[in-house]
């Protein structure tokens, strides 16, 4: 019902709150322009970008834009920035990289992801180690802490061996004696140490031998750290490490990474680990 008595034009005949009448004026021109501009933009957008679903695929868009293409472009940007360093790495030894402040810094920053993907599962994200897995941040290295030896450990892996000494070799009382001496840091003064042949691998000074991977028995760092350290030492002596004849033996094996990682990646990891805080 239209009430045309309003001097300002046609109304819809609706009245609200006693006084508000709705006029039938057309929308403002700028508003209509905005409306048309909007749908034109939508059409252009769907022409430019991939959009409409088709029977077996979709309309690819006139610009040929894809999200994977944009990702690859971005990745290439990163690779290009890194190229100035990455190009140098294959021709250099790990020691040479370590000696070059700029390259060392680059490797330290860029290899965090590599370490996280491949090493952190056992050694912890910061290299702090985990029960059964040695810390990489301290200065105690079973197989040597020089950059070359670290690189070798990563590439070829490591598997030390300590025969079980329990049962036929040592009585429980002897194991107690040896373990207490190790725990107190006085193993070299214990007569059993030489008498039972421990000295052969762990050395007259008790510091172990990097060539064999035998543990240092006189420092403050424990390879198999536990709450009850004395009990842990006893268990290690009794069952050995990686002794195939004892089902309760300690298992300690670092897998080889050559073949899984490129030589350059291994080199970068060696530098990274060396710089974590304990490299020698």
């Amino acid at each position: 019902m239209s009430d045309n008595s309003n001097p300002h034009g046609q109304t819809t005949g609706h009245v609200w709150d006693e006084t508000l009448a709705e006029l039938t004026n057309p929308p403002p021109k700028w508003w209509m322009l905005g409306l048309h501009a909007s749908w034109i933009l939508v059409v252009l957008y769907t022409l430019y970008y991939p959009s409409w679903p088709l029977v077996s695929s979709h309309f690819k868009g006139l610009a040929g834009w894809t999200s994977i293409g944009e990702f690859k472009k971005d990745m290439k940007e990163v690779t290009d920035i890194r190229a100035k360093y990455e190009d140098k790495l294959p021709g250099m030894s790990a020691a040479a990289i370590l000696a070059d402040d700029e390259l060392k810094n680059y490797v330290m920053r860029s290899s965090k992801v590599l370490f996280g993907d491949n090493c952190a599962a056992c050694h912890g994200s910061g290299g702090a180690g985990n029960p059964g897995y040695p810390a990489l941040v301290d200065d105690d290295w079973l197989f040597g802490g020089s950059i070359e030896l670290i690189e070798q450990s990563i590439a070829a892996g490591r598997k030390g061996m300590m025969p079980k000494m329990g049962g036929a070799q040592l009585s429980d009382a002897e194991i107690d004696k040896l373990a207490t001496a190790i725990h107190n840091g006085t193993i070299t003064e214990e007569p059993l140490y030489a008498a039972k042949g421990c000295i052969g691998c762990h050395g007259p000074d008790g510091k172990g031998m990097a060539a064999l991977g035998s543990a240092n028995l006189v420092d403050k760092i424990w390879r198999f750290k536990a709450k009850d350290q004395l009990a842990s030492i006893k268990a290690t002596i009794a069952h050995g490490v990686n002794d195939p004849t004892d089902p309760n033996t300690r298992k300690a094996e670092m897998p080889a990474w050559k073949g899984r990682l490129t030589d350059t990646q291994i080199k970068k990891l060696a530098v990274y680990v060396h710089a974590l805080g304990g490299g020698q």
């Binding site: 994200s125 910061g126 941040v137 105690d140 403050k220 304990g278």
Partner: peptide, 16 residues
């Protein structure tokens, strides 16, 4: 962090 401190073989403590 991770680790907050490191026990070194000579008895000193190391922080990064």
């Amino acid at each position: 962090r991770t680790p907050l401190f490191v026990q070194r073989s000579d008895g000193t403590i190391q922080n990064k």
